[in-house]
Design a protein around this nucleic acid. Structure first.
Lengths: 401, 401
DNA sequence: TCTAGTTAGGAAGGAGTCCTGACCAAAGAT
DNA sequence: ATCTTTGGTCAGGACTCCTTCCTAACTAGA
């Protein structure tokens, strides 16, 4: 029973199941190692040459694989390279955040053919931002459409938690931003016949670091985002821990014992730094961006030796370290990565490490993320790609040609 | 690639794979619904009658299935019931804790044929306790051996964290008990040709509640044990979260901000209650048991209306609630169950609920475990059973008859 | 330039698995 | 006594994968 679920399809034992399995393995292999010949596929997968050839024939017939030149320069018969057809489809990733809307469209290899950033429309009302989102995605699809097949998945990154059951954005009570009130599923409704994946931005950054970044080898790891808010993305194995209601990783709430409750909670992990600089965050648009800049200035001063600023950084590091220590006590990750505009600041790493060293049961490795501010969009793209590839395969096996 | 890993075997597409899959499904179905006829299996699984018959023939040939009477009382041909052979094997579960050693041996249906509890040997030196463990398990195997096949798995519950990579017990620096210094793998070395599963007691209790107790329907849940120590078992989906080094769930460390660091950490979650009663835990053997009793008395007084005791319970509840709130902020479980000699006390539930309600981003359901102090052994048994059943299948498919 | 060795791909045949549909035998229903 | 229902088997067919052999084409080396 569990096995059947694990396969993620109607896994009754049957000839069809066997064929789908072979096709999927062959397709995956080509994805990862194109260009590749049938003989190489066979050798690597352990599947016999004949069977591989059959699978390739099916996949080529379905328009998913294409010949890609000849294998020359060695003894023996000339082999035919294969690759995934560039017309097989494409994906779109969108990062919907208060500062800007970033968009990336890429083919199934992850090769982008469109990248753009846009300031949010003014005035920033939910309905207008939703419309802007729809328009941008629509344009991206039009861009991809002539030669790249059809859109296979769209991933949208949002700054809010997302309900894992319904994939709906959970509006936070104190959100000052209209982005938190948009439901991308609705905004893009009817635009495409492909899954619309909505996910929290920090979770996506975590996915990016895990699949393609500094956490590639870590089996369990936590990505701690420190910027206009403080949040965490948690990956155990290849599984993203979303929580029952999608609020896993809201570690801003952990600092409750050292900070008074209030609207800052869950949003301003570096509250002291900005307060020390005489800045008070408000609900004004752009406030977060300003706050981040202010905090960064404090951190820079600390790096230059300013004692007062240093003390502030120390204290912030301790707060963050306490949160990380709590995470360690709960899930004991192998690695913790810091990210976000504040988290990437080099002055922060040491105080955080020191605190965690002091408090955690068994302190993990703590490093800084390598993907920088590209992590979120990168993660969204990766998520869309994975889904697109899986669906591609399902599409093939549904209509065996 | 991922699919192959998911299957947990040499999942190259092949005829054999198909057969193994069918056999496993049939075996599982009989396990869950014995006695059952071939026709019923076919109807329920969707596999054709012919194929089911084939599989049953193979499994019976391998000695795993046996006819179990006739299906009468209805129209049509008399069907043959099948069940898993009672000679297919058995499992042994051991709970190795400072107070006593509890043991349970059961057939593959989970039906116990041996249950016993033993006081630890005196003097309690690691080597002697290890020897005692070996002897007890040895006796259990002898008990099972004549008619029940061979031992297929032994699960040992320990109070320490367990390294998930090596399955070795991690000795805690301040452990006053010899049990924490025993490596069950070594103590039982050579005794049996079956896997020896070592797992933390709280994790096992969590498994028991998730698979057979109050958390059956919760997809993600945390089991919080409050007794001579404070710990947590975390299950997301069907996956036990052990952490990279096995110290996930050491939430005793979370109360660091409200308690001074020291040897109490991670062991005495109810420190205030016992301190209030004038008791100071020591490294003496039996100290923990006394401490628990003392704390329970305080809780009883609180339930009877004693104001002073009530205040202590309130405060303890708050401490525990804070820890749970932290867990919620990190992983957002659907359900939290309280367990352990203190955690099961009814006076604790309300204060804990109130605190979590106050602090957690989205408070989860909080209940009391239903399996009581049987949870640990129950979980060990469940773990051994699951493993035994999986291996059983692997055994069949390795040597197809 | 020519031969030998090497390699990709294909064809044929065989083994194994699952399914459909027909069939049988026995029991209860009528 | 006959009909209907039902568990199980049998025969035939479809499909998938594998092994083995074969072919064509290329490189290496004399």
């Amino acid at each position: 029973m569990e096995i059947r679920k694990g396969l993620g399809l109607q896994a009754l034992p049957s000839m069809t199941l066997l064929r789908e399995l072979t096709d999927q393995i062959v397709l995956d292999t080509v994805f990862e190692q194109a260009p590749i010949t049938r003989a190489e596929i066979a050798q690597q997968t352990g599947i016999s040459k004949t069977t591989v050839s059959e699978a390739v024939r099916r996949l080529e017939g379905a328009g998913l694989l294409l010949p890609a030149g000849e294998q020359r320069g060695r003894q023996g018969r000339v082999g035919t390279y294969y690759k995934v057809a560039s017309t097989a489809g494409f994906v779109v990733a969108v990062d919907l955040n208060p500062t800007q809307i970033r968009l990336c469209a890429a083919d199934l290899f992850g090769q982008p053919f469109l990248e753009s950033a846009h300031p949010p429309v003014q005035p920033r009302e939910p309905a207008r931002v939703a419309e802007q989102l729809r328009e941008l995605v629509s344009k991206a699809i039009a861009e991809g459409n002539p030669g790249r097949g059809r859109p296979l998945a769209v991933a949208v990154s949002v700054a809010n938690p997302v309900d894992p059951a319904t994939s709906r954005v959970i509006p936070l009570a104190d959100t000052p931003y209209p982005e938190g009130l948009i439901q991308p599923q609705e905004a893009l409704d009817g635009l495409i016949d492909a899954p619309i994946l909505v996910e929290n931005d920090v979770n996506l950054a975590a996915i990016a670091e895990r699949w393609h970044g500094a956490a590639r080898t870590a089996d369990s790891f936590a990505y701690v985002y420190i910027g206009a808010g403080m949040g965490m993305g948690l990956l155990i194995g290849d599984q993203l821990i979303r929580g029952a209601r999608g609020v896993a990783g809201e570690i801003g709430y952990l600092s409750v014992s050292s900070q008074p409750p209030g609207p800052l909670h869950g949003r301003h992990g570096f509250a002291r730094a900005i307060a020390a600089a005489g800045f008070h965050p408000s609900r004004e648009p752009g406030s977060d961006q300003v706050a981040v800049d202010v905090a960064r200035q404090v951190f820079d001063r600390a790096a230059k030796g300013n004692a007062e600023a240093k003390a502030v950084v120390e204290e912030e590091g301790r707060t963050i370290g306490e949160a990380i220590a709590a995470v360690c006590a709960v899930v004991d990750p192998e690695l913790v990565l810091l990210g976000g505009p504040i988290g990437l600041h080099p002055a922060l790493l040491e105080p955080v490490r020191a605190t965690v060293q002091d408090l955690a049961p068994l302190p993990p490795a703590i490093e800084v993320g390598t993907l920088g501010d590209a992590a979120v969009l990168h993660g969204a793209l990766a998520l869309a790609l994975r889904r697109a590839r899986a669906d591609l395969w399902a599409g093939v096996s549904r209509q065996p040609s």
